[in-house]
């Protein structure tokens, strides 16, 4: 099993530290979801993991070998960025065909048949310039590059941004098919959490430049409870547990609780307990500081 490891990763731009002492291990053959609020450092983290941005300190290794300036390691990675085509970007004059041809000239394991197939599936006109494409169509282009690169570790930054619901479903289906067939590792950064939750085997939650959770998605969701009731009852039921996103409304109170292994709510209190989805867990974790 291959491992991509980030050790004490720090990235600062001048005085501003974007990521601080971050440690993360990605194992091959999994689909990871990277979620975080705007400015949490998701794109920076993906850039550091693929050598597209130099680290300030720390290191990234793939099977023990540094990826920085190592051709063998870089050949196993692909980070398909979200394309922001501005008028002054040189890319705006590129046609879809030229962009894909350029990508093909760089990726060692490029699958042209797959790229052609996806162009047809997404009904893209290859003669159209990138500058003329809608946000959703640009996302399709980045998806095609990510998939056709056939890289062992593939990183996608906001792959479904601007895609309509049908295209998003197509993408998730494509992702699962590719994953099942090849066992490639995918890391997907997204804001559309609930939709992507079904395909994320592991979830990495990034907040203010730090990983606050890295866990199996189902385990995380299963461990979460939304507890409501009178404030004193809720406080009693959740005493000593990891509580997040506490809200008071008159005498009532609601709180999201993350239960540890073998933990449960304290018995004997009159509270309502509801399951929580991944999006709610994310809001609970990143919406405010935790209290224990």
């Amino acid at each position: 099993m291959s491992k991509l490891v980030c050790e004490n990763l720090t990235k600062a731009y001048g005085q501003k530290t974007v990521l601080e002492n971050l440690n993360l291990t990605l194992e091959s053959g999994k689909i990871y979801g990277l979620i975080g609020r705007n400015g949490a450092g998701k794109t920076t983290l993906l850039s550091l993991m693929t050598s597209q941005t130099p680290v300030t300190s720390g290191r990234v290794t793939l099977d023990g070998q540094r990826i920085w300036e190592t051709r063998k390691s870089l050949d196993r990675l692909c980070f398909s960025r979200e394309l922001n085509i501005s008028a002054e970007s040189g890319l705006s004059a590129f046609t879809v065909k030229k962009y894909l041809k350029t990508a093909a000239s760089y990726y060692t394991h490029w699958d042209q048949a797959m790229a052609d197939d996806l162009v047809a599936k997404f009904e893209l006109n290859v003669k159209t310039k990138l500058g003329k494409l809608s946000k959703g169509m640009l996302s399709m282009v980045t998806i095609i590059v990510a998939m056709a690169s056939k890289a062992e570790f593939t990183f996608l930054d906001e792959p479904v941004a601007g895609l309509d619901v049908v295209a998003r479903e197509q993408f998730y289906q494509l992702l699962l098919e590719e994953y099942t067939e090849t066992g490639r590792t995918f890391v997907i950064s997204t804001h559309i959490i609930e939709e992507a939750a079904d395909v994320m085997e592991e979830v990495i939650i990034l907040d203010k430049g730090k990983i606050i959770r890295e866990q199996n998605t189902q385990e995380l969701v299963d461990s979460a409870r939304y507890v409501t009731g009178l404030a004193d009852q809720v406080d009693g039921a959740t005493a000593g547990l990891e509580c997040h996103h506490s809200e008071n409304l008159g005498r009532s109170k609601s709180v999201t609780v993350l239960l540890g292994e073998d933990e449960d709510l304290n018995p004997g209190y009159d509270v309502t307990v509801q399951p929580v989805n991944l999006q709610k867990v994310f809001v609970a974790l990143c919406g405010e500081e935790a209290r224990v």
């Binding site: 050598s51 300036e69 692909c78 980070f79 350029t102 990508a103 760089y106 990726y107």
Partner: peptide, 8 residues
């Protein structure tokens, strides 16, 4: 493009 597509 070169760095985004994996050049050293």
């Amino acid at each position: 493009l070169a760095l985004a597509f994996g050049s050293t």
